[in-house]
Nucleic acid binder design. Structure first.
Lengths: 239, 239
DNA sequence: ATTATAACATGATAAATATCATTTTTATAA
DNA sequence: TTATAAAAATGATATTTATCATGTTATAAT
């Protein structure tokens, strides 16, 4: 009887996780069928509305979050009250790997930029996979390494490029990673303040530059949305 | 006969690596006796003079470097010809883990800031340890995670703090990580250009601020050396 | 629909920082 | 030891960017 119930549960759960975009794109792709079943049984699913937090800086998370849908930002509040955005994350990605591995409270806050659906996987599960599945641990390792490389390059860009160059670069990256709507505007919709938080500048400076770019026909401002009109020129400007 | 020779070789080699500072401080501390023997047999030792490179940006390294002695800088040359320093490394640390794990050419150049002694460990060895020693893989993972956290925080500091704050912070960090000489000056000796490369500013601006700090009695400039005189005030300034 | 609130926008100005020019000091090699 | 180059220092100036003030438009709540 017990077995039957478990069997039924597992099938449903396995289907759910097995077909999930996170399973296809993240380190979790290395898990075998049994492991996916284990995963499906231990996960919890949440919905997070735009603006809400998944976790805050300083919180102990004790696990990782899979992003099934939506867009999130990892950010840190500075002394002067500005929210510096470190990274945008989207469906298919894992969140909170670093602090889980380091055994530390979260260094950054994670908040929804667009409505999100996430699954929480407890630390014990992840560590079990890490210790028993070499491909998984290698994948996880590579994913953190990729983050490190990105962070280093981003850091260099922030220091060595002007605000104008950083804005051009960031617009291109947003276009690249998140794509465009039917009306050709950028799919991720950030406020000017958030955009300023990514490129590390004052909101007013960001707004001013956007309107310069608009006048130069590099972009078009469609209400609050942004459409890239001259990608070639933006690329040139970013260098 | 064969066994005898190997036995003798291993003892010497094991002693060498077993007592090495890198073995005590890095992820390698998780290795058992047999693994240390394997390590000792596969490593190669190099000496690198101040100013020389261990590896350059874009090079395929195919292994990691252990820093037995000296100080190195990880940096990237920007379009405008400036060398942005991403991180300073010292004895006990490993170098080139990220690009090895990611299977990519080095993203940064590694150069000696002070004469160095390093050992090269081939990729095959490291991967073998990674797949067969859970504690080692966890250590390696944690070390990369630590780098990531540092890089993110450093990035935020670079963007949100003024050049003056960054200089104060960097001087304190150098004091913290590398200590001071008998005459109380900082042990790592960087040129003003290198220091500017860490805080991300023009060399002249860096020199100017150092001389301001000097006038304010926060530091004392002893020739090219720097002595921290008022650590409390520097800390306050960095915030 | 109307009010309140947040987001966006722009001008004026101040502050921070970079750049160019020049001089002084220090290190290095002939 | 002197010549030569590199590093450090400082002034003058230009450029970039932030800040403050204010107005406008969009969005949400009553």
């Amino acid at each position: 009887m017990r077995i039957l119930v478990n069997f039924a549960t597992n099938i449903i759960a396995m289907n759910k996780c097995d077909q999930c975009i996170v399973r296809q794109l993240s380190s979790l792709k290395a898990l075998n069928k049994d492991e996916v079943v284990k995963l499906a049984n231990s996960k919890t699913t949440y919905k997070i509305k735009k603006g809400e937090a998944i976790f805050e800086e300083g919180e102990v998370t004790n696990g990782v979050f899979c992003i099934k849908d939506g867009v999130g930002k990892l950010s840190k509040l500075s002394a002067n009250g500005k929210d510096q955005i470190v990274k945008l994350v989207q469906s298919g990605e894992l969140l909170g790997q670093r602090s889980m591995i380091s055994n530390e409270p979260a260094n950054l806050s994670a908040k929804a930029v667009a409505d999100m659906e996430v699954c929480f996987i407890p630390k014990t599960e992840i560590l079990h996979f890490f210790n028993n599945n070499n491909q998984f641990s290698m994948n996880l390792m590579q994913s953190v390494c990729e983050d490190l490389k990105e962070s280093e390059n981003n850091k260099i860009a922030l220091v060595q490029k002007t605000v104008k160059q950083r804005l051009a670069e960031t617009l291109l990256q947003l276009h690249d990673s998140f794509g465009e709507n039917a009306d050709k505007t950028l799919k991720v919709q950030l406020t000017r303040e958030e955009l300023a938080g990514i490129i590390g500048t004052a909101t007013e400076s960001c707004i001013r530059l956007l309107s310069d770019f608009n006048k130069l026909d590099l972009i078009e401002l469609v209400g609050k949305k942004i459409m890239l009109k001259d990608i070639r020129a933006l690329k040139k400007m970013a260098e």
